[in-house]
Design a protein around this nucleic acid. Structure first.
Lengths: 115, 115
DNA sequence: GTATTATGCAACCAAGAGGTTGCTTATCTG
DNA sequence: CAGATAAGCAACCTCTTGGTTGCATAATAC
């Protein structure tokens, strides 16, 4: 494999890890669920149903934003967040590519636990 | 939605977050890549190509194991790890279900950033 | 123009993550 | 058996995370 290719792969992996990590929290997973199936919402709206403080929710939104999963805009005194499906779509493709090896992997696993 | 259904959903979300979090680290993503496309390997083997110490790799493997992504067995003096595709398959399905809403989401996003 | 609402900013805190080193134990190998 | 190899255990360290509280500021409503 070429040097350039290796670097490219490393960068992809880094970006991917960032997206995975952003989804690795129940609160954020909930926020994504909400935003992915509805209109853009303000911080106050997103905090409404939660036991957490507004600031905690804000932090989670910023994490999602740096992973590219949501985008934010200031409208008046509100800060609105919208879901961006593209990073998740990339993850989906990644898992899809990987899934071609799952049958073999499952066979190896079966063999592994039984031997 | 029923109480039972709500609890079930919460449990699913928790398990999912655990798997996502396990993949939210470049080192672990690398280990998964290695194990998913090859035979079960020992800790020493998995440490070989890495700048990290054996103990660091061990910790990562245990994280993957508690998320169900790998399974381990002791064989002789070695501890072997094998890839289990099922949790990743579940994630794939999750993203797949979610992807039905992505066209709408993308349209909303376009509208959002342009208004 | 005053009160209310929505947010931002900063400091702080406890717990967890990622990593190391040092030592012990178990299992081969010659 | 002696030495080498594979791994486990535990303590420790630093940085990050998830959360809080308090205060300041910008927009909106009455």
């Amino acid at each position: 494999m070429s040097h350039k290719n290796r670097k490219h792969k490393a960068a992809k992996r880094q970006a991917r890890a960032l997206v995975f990590a952003a989804l690795g929290d129940e609160t954020r997973l909930g926020l994504v669920a909400t935003l992915s199936s509805g209109e853009p919402a303000s911080i106050a709206q997103l905090t409404a149903g939660s036991p957490l403080t507004r600031q905690a929710i804000t932090k989670h939104l910023r994490v999602l934003e740096s992973a590219g999963i949501v985008r934010s805009l200031h409208v008046g005194r509100e800060s609105l967040f919208a879901f961006d499906p593209r990073p998740l779509s990339e993850l989906h493709d990644y898992l899809d590519r990987m899934s071609r090896r799952w049958d073999d992997a499952l066979a190896r696993l079966k063999n592994f636990v039984e031997e």
